[in-house]
Design a protein around this nucleic acid. Sequence first.
DNA 1: CGGGACTTTGAGCAAATTCAACCATTGTGG
DNA 2: CCACAATGGTTGAATTTGCTCAAAGTCCCG
Lengths: 252, 252
Amino acid sequence: MKEKYAGSVLPRARPRPGGGCGPGPDPCAACTARVISVCDAVSPEDLPRLAALTTPLEASAHRTFIAAGDRADFLFNITGGVVKVYRLLADGRQQITGFLFPGDFLGLATNNTYAFSAEAVTDVRYCRFPRKGLEQFLDDVPKVEKRLLTIASNELAAAQEQMVLLGRKTAREKLATFLVMLGGRMSRLGDSTEEFSLPMSRADIADYLGLTTETVSRTFTQFRTEKLIALPKNDRVRVTDRPALAALAEAE
Amino acid sequence: MKEKYAGSVLPRARPRPGGGCGPGPDPCAACTARVISVCDAVSPEDLPRLAALTTPLEASAHRTFIAAGDRADFLFNITGGVVKVYRLLADGRQQITGFLFPGDFLGLATNNTYAFSAEAVTDVRYCRFPRKGLEQFLDDVPKVEKRLLTIASNELAAAQEQMVLLGRKTAREKLATFLVMLGGRMSRLGDSTEEFSLPMSRADIADYLGLTTETVSRTFTQFRTEKLIALPKNDRVRVTDRPALAALAEAE
DNA sequence: CGGGACTTTGAGCAAATTCAACCATTGTGG
DNA sequence: CCACAATGGTTGAATTTGCTCAAAGTCCCG
């Protein structure tokens, strides 16, 4: 199992392992993830109202907490841990469309049902908002709606980036891009860019990059042989030749 | 050149070839694309104000009217013709992230610059809005902002779909998906689902599906041999076995 | 210490690419 | 009006990248 990863994602997060909402009457005010999420757009005086809508929840590693086809009654904000968002084909082929980290937002749905599934990669903490209530809240606090639009735009840009990766990059370029991206992300969460944890399995990395586990593994080995990276543990990378890795990643 | 395609995309559109905004004092009110676009969320009394912000423009086939890196001062609404949105890698590899049709919206940008380029595939008509002015307008007409969020959500869902295609589908499945999608899109624009125009080149299809022109061409030939489709002209498809094509497309 | 899950490695294979030639359509200039 | 160049599309052969199938190897954790 993967419980080992729990809490390793926010090494310097303060109040609770894995980060997350604080307890007490005003949990959102104490939320360690707030500064990097939607909730940042909420002014202090509106926080209690947001908190009233919020249900803080947890999911242990490998739990699927959103299944494609479910009624899309909720929106989510990840406060601790790592989540994978994915789609399946009928025969089981899986494409992971994104990994979510603390502060990331989830749940923008087109119809009344989710078109994707979401599974906890590590133990996860998240806040759940009922769509109905949140929509009301959004009407009253337009700033948050703007923020949502910004978030959606960012995700759209990221999605386009990922399409370039999936459609036009080689296995080496894909993995290099992934490592650079993950390093950046991890460092923003308090880990170092040079050495950081790799919370997801090889299979998940493969399903994110449009490859097989074997190819991911082989490419890791190549990179290690070429001294671009080191793998002190299976779930930890040290980038030893950042320029070379970045060059591979940004064939653009 | 491709001028031959101009106007072939909205066969039943009324007022002008290729559709587009009407002339005169209230062009938006006469816009044939309005009913299927953002502008639909604008109430009649606000239309003049929107019209005041709008600059109707044209671009002939193959003209790049947004280049990645440009300052993102404008938003766009396609009113006639077909546009491709794409990204390039340094060595020229291209990934088309989407084709836009009349009613489609374009320009959501993360930073101050566009991260993508946009090129007219056929002769194109479009409306241009200055970001600044539009933002003001959005503040006053929250309904439109909501609509934008909905559009962004839809695009996000489409982007995820495309990631599945790029990362996990075979060449045959990719082309089948593309044809089904295009058929649906074309029929909503007044063409038939059974036979419709194929306004983009094989190279563009390849760059959209993460394949090479050769593979696209070979797969077209396969489909023709298997009597799934017919190609009365190079730029026209007739779907002769829709169920089979759909089955190939939706391996999901 | 042993079982299970995950990862790595190897060998052969297949899908898609590359490189190259050929064909078809269209538009141009003689 | 026809020849012909140009562009885009198709086809073929050889090659390559990444996949499949199979077998070890590793690392936890109990």
